[in-house]
């Protein structure tokens, strides 16, 4: 019971600061769950993100379910997910009730312009840190460059390849050409 409560509160905290989409959450998850709580490894997190990209729903929520489940089984998964949802639900309820022009308030606009700057630095630092764990040779580097290009500049191409398709292709590619299987 105490551990479930801890799961709930931890993911409530993460849900409260999940700005800028799921991937922006990675630096925060790393700090909270890998460095401080030691519930998962960085590799686990990357795996969850990859799977979350190919399954329905918000990636950040997928990651919460995964980690909750890893800690305390099915119930843990549900508890972590509900924790993650708590603050966003409350915020929108408050906005819907009282603040119809919330997004137009100058203080909100200015604060979030500042937060966005911080989010890109956090993501950039996460990429630097995670680089050595995922880009291990020339094959993974090539895979990285191709997927990065398609994901970042896909909208300039005649057909935009959905992110889920990119990730699934990378997985299939790994099965055929990957060097996995060795122990860490």
């Amino acid at each position: 019971m105490k551990e479930l409560l801890e799961l709930y509160l931890e993911f409530m905290k993460i849900g409260a600061v999940n700005f800028g989409g799921g991937y922006a959450m990675l630096p925060l998850l790393e700090r909270e769950l890998v460095t401080e709580k030691k519930w998962v490894t960085t590799e686990d997190l990357l795996d969850y993100f990859a799977i979350g990209q190919c399954t329905p729903g918000v990636i950040a929520l997928n990651v919460s379910t995964f980690i909750g489940n890893k800690r305390k089984g099915t119930l843990g998964g549900v508890v972590a997910s509900l924790g993650f949802l708590s603050i966003p639900i409350l915020i929108i309820l408050v906005i819907a009730m009282f603040l119809t022009n919330f997004a137009d308030l100058p203080v909100v606009k200015n604060a979030f312009a500042g937060i966005r700057v911080c989010v890109c630095v956090l993501i950039f630092q996460a990429v630097l840190r995670l680089w050595s764990k995922s880009i291990v040779d020339k094959v993974t580097l090539a895979l990285y460059l191709v997927i990065f290009f398609l994901a970042a500049f896909g909208s300039l191409l005649p057909v935009k390849v959905p992110a889920a398709v990119l990730v699934i292709c990378a997985g299939v590619f790994g099965v055929f050409f990957g060097k996995g299987g060795e122990k860490k």
Partner: peptide
């Protein structure tokens, strides 16, 4: 499955970089 994750992790980090670039495009 191990081999699949070899590819998936590279994809994961590529997606994260792309997401960062998208935020930078409006933030910076």
């Amino acid at each position: 499955v191990e081999k699949a994750f070899y590819g998936l992790r590279a994809a994961s980090i590529a997606m994260i970089t792309a997401a960062g670039l998208n935020v930078a495009r409006i933030a910076l």
